[in-house]
Amino acid sequence: MSKSDKTAKPDEAYDEAYDEALPRLQLALVKMQQQALANGEKVLVIFEGRDAAGKDGTIQRITEHMSVRATRVVALSKPSDVELSQWYFQRFVSHLPAGGQFVIFNRSWYNRAGVERVMGFSTPADQEDFLREVPLFEQMLVGSGIRLVKIWMDVTKSEQAQRLAERKNDPLKVLKSSPLDAFAQPRWDDYSAARDEMLRRTDTVLAPWVCVKADHKKTARLNVIRHLVNTLAPPPIAKTVEAPDPEVLFQFEIAALTDGRLCN
């Protein structure tokens, strides 16, 4: 497949390649988790991204064959009145991984820098405190032995519009819908500005962001799994999996805000 085809819609040949690659990559994930269990490793993967960026489907493929007991997907609802009165990070702490656990946050504390900012669910002072504190918080997590991976999934405005429309029209996707979906397109530019500031201020050496071009769901899924294996697995396992395609998944850098790699 040529480079120009990598963001195109899948054809039959590509679907066959995906169907061949996915089980092989999932097997690498299983082997990786076996080692993590044996070594008592604590793994935390954070998925963030625009509405309908493909987080749910990617997480499903990651966890499909992993240990039910040792794997958790955390997708918290809006905070209660009691939680609103607590330290902001407090409600997330109880969900952090213990030894041998693989935890995925499907959205996380970064809600404060995204939807809360755009929708006015927290004050500008709260948002500024968060952006100042989160690098320190994540530094403590990494210092405690947690292996932290942060993934931003990005889609174009037109692709998001198509996916949101599918949610409305497909009864099997109705549970993916949210009242906030109605604001995703009208406030696209606000979400872009929030994303840019979040990535710029919370990308650190200890807790870097990787960004994924996710218009092509299957390409995104394969590259995310490759990244996880290459990042988290011991070398004998990691070397069996090719590196992610840098045109699909790339380490965040400031230049990405203006050079077209992120959707505006």
Rank of each mutant, 00 (worst) to 15 (best):
W87A: 02
H65P: 05
E48G: 00
H65E: 11
L199Q: 02
A214N: 02
K6Y: 08
A8G: 00
A21H: 12
I46V: 15
L131Q: 08
R69I: 06
K9S: 11
T240N: 09
R72E: 00
A38Y: 06
L84F: 01
A238C: 06
M1N: 03
R132C: 00
I46Q: 07
G49H: 07
V174L: 09
E64G: 00
Y191S: 01
A13P: 09
G54Y: 01
V134W: 04
P171A: 01
L22R: 03
S108A: 13
E197F: 00
D181R: 04
V149G: 08
G49Q: 10
S122G: 08
R132E: 13
V205H: 12
Q90C: 06
R72K: 14
V68Y: 09
L44Q: 02
L257I: 11
K42Y: 01
S177G: 15
Q101L: 10
G49C: 10
P236Q: 04
G40D: 10
G54D: 08
I46N: 09
A194S: 13
V118T: 03
K6I: 14
K217D: 10
L180N: 08
R195C: 04
D189G: 07
W209I: 01
Q34Y: 08
L136F: 14
T123C: 04
D81G: 07
K6E: 08
D15I: 15
A36S: 14
